[in-house]
Design a protein around this nucleic acid. Structure first.
Lengths: 229, 229
DNA sequence: GTTAAAACATGATAATTATCAGGTTTTGTT
DNA sequence: AACAAAACCTGATAATTATCATGTTTTAAC
């Protein structure tokens, strides 16, 4: 279901809200709406991007492949977030791949429109800057977590993060379902270790599972674990 | 030795080069020059910053303390870099502490001057954005390294990084001398493990040491190690 | 210059995590 | 429905890394 950016709610969550009517019109006229199926690749590490992707619905993982064939998920991007901004601004090839972890709807916005607006509308530039500053802070936090927390703590944190950011259904299962491998790649561990910890958490009553679905069963206990008790 | 920003070479390395004469004059008139001794703290995690620090000389570590009392160094900032930008832009308290790892000279620039310029000069905003985009990419790389490389590989990388970015003296020792503890905190490991690896690298002829000083002895071998051979 | 504190160093051991090997279950395709 | 592929799971083991204990050297303060 396509529509005009001017009326798009998603825009309120990202820097595009700092655009004026004219600028928004240009974006709307040049944007390309696209559906992306779960598992499909939006772009791959090393590619040059001709624009950015504004996420209207669904979730994408941004990850980087290493020499030994492992994938580290650096960030999950969802409704309202803009993917590829960093790359377009720095005028480089992407350092990350973007793959849909659920069915997605995105709008592709050509880079010219973005950079023109950046160069002429300081409000927009500052707004983008704020978002990037936020991303940078989050990245710093991830670095610290990676080096100072155990795999168990990071797993616990991942469940709490998903609950907080994507919510849960009526039955108490997380709305965003990730494969065990994806969990492992978020947390930075081996898939087997990840599965083992899921089993352990389940046995201890911290989480509940049903097939691929996972739900937080004892938020407090998970929180305690994260904090080192 | 104080001077005018207009004539400051350091400015060429950071976003301040996108300022026009008037703006630069304002910065120069409001800036406060300050010497900082090795080991001295510039600001601490959680503080509110009234401005940014432009590094004229020396190196600062930006780190975050964790619950268990360990410090993770997220970034080393040196000549030309601006510290505290992220915080000032996001209008939050800092998520990191800044401590000098060598004697430093910095210029404090009040945040009003920065934000006024951001709001009126798109060139400056875009330039800041570019620098932030670069920092974000580096942070992503660190995340991936943390999760996918061994401590040994990260140590090897640290030596190569220091050689590349700070150079070495006539005797072949790194210009920037870090304590073993700082190395451990950059790499994200225990100080004892760090020391052990230094001993091992020395024994194998990858590096050489003399007191606290460390020099790269076999760049190729270190590089091979980083790449997993 | 003495002395206390900090930094450096190494061994022994324990804890964490990865890897390999073998299963079962689920999913998607013909 | 049958089949192959992918995802999930568990055990055994090995590798990595942290921790504790203890001693030495260097640095800084008086």
């Amino acid at each position: 279901m396509e529509s005009r950016c001017e009326n798009c709610i998603v825009r309120q969550f990202n820097a595009l809200r700092a655009m004026n009517k004219e600028e928004l019109k240009k974006v709307s006229d040049s944007k390309v709406y696209r559906k992306i199926k779960k598992g499909e690749t939006i772009f791959e590490e090393g590619e040059k991007l001709d624009g950015v992707f504004c996420v209207r619905d669904g979730v994408s993982k941004l990850s980087k492949l290493s020499a030994n064939g492992k994938d580290q998920i650096v960030k999950l991007a969802s409704k309202g977030e803009v993917i590829g901004q960093r790359t377009v601004i720095a005028e480089e090839s992407t350092n990350l791949s973007a793959v849909a972890v659920s069915d997605m709807e995105v709008c592709f916005i050509p880079k010219e429109v973005i950079s023109n607006t950046l160069n002429t509308n300081p409000n927009f530039a500052v707004e983008v800057l704020r978002h990037m500053a936020h991303d940078l802070k989050e990245a710093d936090d991830v670095i610290v977590n990676m080096s100072q927390k155990t795999v168990k703590q990071r797993m616990a944190e991942a469940f709490l993060y998903l609950k907080k950011n994507y919510g849960e259904d009526e039955a108490g299962f997380l709305n965003l379902t990730l494969s065990r491998e994806d969990y492992a790649n978020v947390v930075g561990t081996a898939t087997e270790s990840c599965i083992r910890i899921i089993s352990e958490f389940k046995k201890k009553g911290f989480i509940k599972t049903s097939g691929k679905q996972i739900g937080v069963a004892d938020e407090r206990k998970l929180q305690d674990l994260v904090e080192g008790f």
